[in-house]
Design a binder for these strands. Structure first.
Lengths: 217, 217
DNA sequence: ACCTGAACACCGTTCAAGT
DNA sequence: ACCTGAACACCGTTCAAGT
């Protein structure tokens, strides 16, 4: 048993404590992480001068640090396969703490690690033959799909509550629809979300492949 | 000039005041909306017993109320065109107050208006020939794209800050990438986001059309 | 340098009281 | 029924003080 080093706190331990809180409670607070680290709330400011928002940035870094970059820049793998991996990896990193996504999207990207991840995406798009002028649009779409999926996965409880009373409100949208919504509510959420993501990934891959072919001609 | 009616407050005025705050300040607070309505903070609880989270729900209703349902259920329009309209309309409703999206996604859907909107989506998917078993997955993807795009549009400031110092960190990801990211940072954001959305819409439409054709065979 | 303790302004919510 | 006013627990942040 090694003696604990003198410093109890570090930016990484703070970020990890905050992440654990978000994963369990759905959110985090300064006194909360301080208590988890058996420390005074004000102590955190010595390590993260930026306060709460800086903790959020460090949380994002911590999540993205778990992504292995190697398969994303492996020239031996086809660009489309690398794109599949990229989307699944980023989404998985966020899905580890889905409710953190709603916290993350509220603050802009700044840390080098996140930029690095997105730089690999631009390389993949280039290798796939997407014209330079279109890469930003594609990355925006891919970002939207991945973030949206992660949020979808993390949205609390059944997203679709069956309509309580089908009291014949409007003739236009009458009988079959409420049923459909009920169908959506049944079926376990895990597979529902997973299927939606798989579909999204393949749809995006198809679009990228199509853009690449169009550029070749 | 009509005399103001006796009751100063209503759920709708509260929701609209909160929306206005989110649009201007990026967030809202109970004392904030109370002050905007020249009323005591505690007064709000008489109309919205659910407190802050109920205000959020009413905000979502208020936003979606601006969507015209008629073109979405018009049998004279092709399903794919209706899908295009659906995505653009929902996205536009959210884009009116982009930063509200990050608030909305934190709370699950409950209000009938929002359910109504998504019911029209299921009808469109059915009309487009998407098999019943796949409609949930498709709706999840579409939801992800629309929400993600709206968040993208509302994310504060340049999403991509150019890497400050290219101090030759790793050989793998060396010269061209920082350039690419810089390109992304330039170019006005309006068109960037718009192009990304258009791309996403057409990509999704293609996927839906493909699923419809596959089911026909 | 690293952490504590007290202090400040502020937020969400409740509840008895007014009209 | 609708709104006020006081009150409570709590949060984010600062800053002087300890070691």
């Amino acid at each position: 048993m090694p003696r604990p080093s003198k410093n109890i706190l570090s930016t990484s331990t703070i970020a990890r404590a905050a992440l654990k809180l978000v994963e369990t409670k759905g959110d985090f607070t300064i006194p909360g992480v301080a208590a988890a680290l058996k420390v005074n709330p004000s102590s955190l400011y010595h390590h993260l001068p930026g306060g709460r928002s800086e903790i959020v940035h460090r949380m994002r870094e911590e999540l993205y640090a778990r992504i292995d970059l190697a398969p994303l820049v492996d020239a031996g793998v086809s660009p489309l396969d690398r794109l599949r991996t990229w989307m699944r990896e980023v989404r998985a990193a966020l899905a580890n703490a889905p409710s953190v996504v709603t916290v993350l999207v509220a603050s802009p990207v700044q840390d080098p690690r996140t930029l690095e991840i997105y730089e690999t995406l631009f390389v993949i798009l280039r290798d796939a033959g997407v014209p330079a002028d279109d890469r930003v649009a594609f990355s925006a779409m891919i970002d939207a799909v991945v973030l949206g999926s992660a949020i979808d996965a993390g949205s609390p409880a059944p997203l679709w509550r069956p309509t309580p009373a089908p009291d014949s409100s409007e003739a236009l949208t009458a009988p079959p629809l409420s049923e459909l919504v009920c169908v959506a509510a049944s079926g376990d959420d895990r597979s529902r979300v997973q299927k939606g993501l798989d579909l999204a990934v393949e749809t995006v891959v198809a679009a990228v492949a199509s853009a690449g072919r169009a550029a070749d001609r």
